[in-house]
Simulated assay, not measured.
Amino acid sequence: MQKSWSAGPGRITVHKGDITRLSVDAIVNAANSRLAGGGGVDGAIHRAAGIDLLQAACREIIREIGSLPPGEAVITPGFGLSARHIIHTVGPIWRGGANREPELLGNAYRNSMALAHQHDIKTLAFPAISCGVYGYPVEDAARIALAALRQGLETELVGEAVMVLYSEAAFHTWSRIAEDIL
């Protein structure tokens, strides 16, 4: 199940499915600040890519930078995925919205696309960053994410951005919001 919209010379697609199975240049991981793997999409990506290889690459990055702050992004190979790369970004934990959460969430999408552009990545798939255990309100997150994706496509950072939602309810919510703002 998917729907697409034009954004500048590119395309935004809202897709229901498993992000680890998509044939795209790169997928984005909703990571924690230690890049340590975890539950949800982060755990699924680690398992699909190969836990040992991906965790070794992530540990090397953390050795160099200490931790990954919310809104920032780093890149690793895709290892066992069909995607060549994994872009890891940390979304903000929802604390009511007065702690720069909207800015940091937008930065997670923007910085992921900027990093993709630096690595000549044309198709990039995103999960709903911060919408799981980090508790970001889904409708607010969708508006921020889709606006950031539209801006990235209009400035040609990537050619296609795919929002991958695991549940049918999330797919319908993101599709409805995309219809409103795209």
Rank of each mutant, 00 (worst) to 15 (best):
H85M: 05
I93Q: 05
V74C: 11
G152Q: 09
I87H: 08
V74P: 05
I86L: 07
P69G: 08
G43N: 09
S82G: 06
I75K: 08
L146F: 07
E160F: 03
R63M: 12
L157F: 13
P9C: 03
W174L: 08
R34A: 15
I61A: 12
I87R: 06
T76V: 12
A125F: 04
I177K: 04
S175I: 01
S33I: 00
R59G: 12
P92S: 00
E101S: 02
K3M: 10
T13I: 03
E72S: 13
A83C: 04
G159L: 04
G38W: 05
A170C: 02
K122V: 01
D18R: 06
M1Y: 03
E160R: 10
C58M: 12
D42T: 06
R95F: 03
A31H: 09
M1K: 11
L35E: 12
G78I: 08
D25F: 01
G50D: 12
H85V: 02
I129Q: 02
A31F: 03
H172M: 11
A116P: 07
D42G: 06
P9L: 11
E103D: 08
H119M: 01
R100N: 14
D180R: 15
L104S: 00
L104M: 04
V28A: 01
S82P: 08
W5D: 03
E60C: 07
E139C: 02
A44I: 09
G43K: 07
E179K: 14
V14W: 03
E154W: 07
D42Y: 07
D180F: 05
A7I: 11
A145P: 02
T173W: 01
A30V: 06
L146D: 09
P127L: 11
T155W: 09
S175L: 11
H15Q: 08
N107D: 14
N111T: 05
W5I: 11
Q118H: 13
V162I: 15
K122Y: 04
Q55A: 09
L53K: 15
E179L: 12
P92F: 03
L157D: 04
W5E: 04
P9I: 05
A44M: 07
E156D: 12
R84K: 15
A178K: 05
T13D: 00
A30M: 01
A56I: 10
V74H: 04
I121S: 03
I27F: 06
I19G: 00
I12N: 07
I177M: 07
G40R: 02
L54S: 10
D42V: 05
N107F: 10
H85E: 06
V158Y: 06
V133Y: 01
L124E: 02
E60L: 14
E179H: 10
P102M: 02
L53E: 14
I51K: 14
V14H: 01
V14Y: 04
L35M: 13
D120P: 00
W174A: 04
R100T: 02
H172C: 04
G10W: 09
D18Y: 10
I12W: 09
T20D: 05
R100K: 10
Y134L: 08
S6A: 14
R59W: 12
F79T: 13
T123S: 12
G39A: 10
L149M: 15
S4K: 13
A147R: 14
A142D: 03
A114C: 03
V28R: 01
K3Q: 13
A142H: 06
I177A: 05
P77Q: 15
S67F: 15
A141Y: 00
I121C: 00
D120H: 13
I19L: 00
A161N: 09
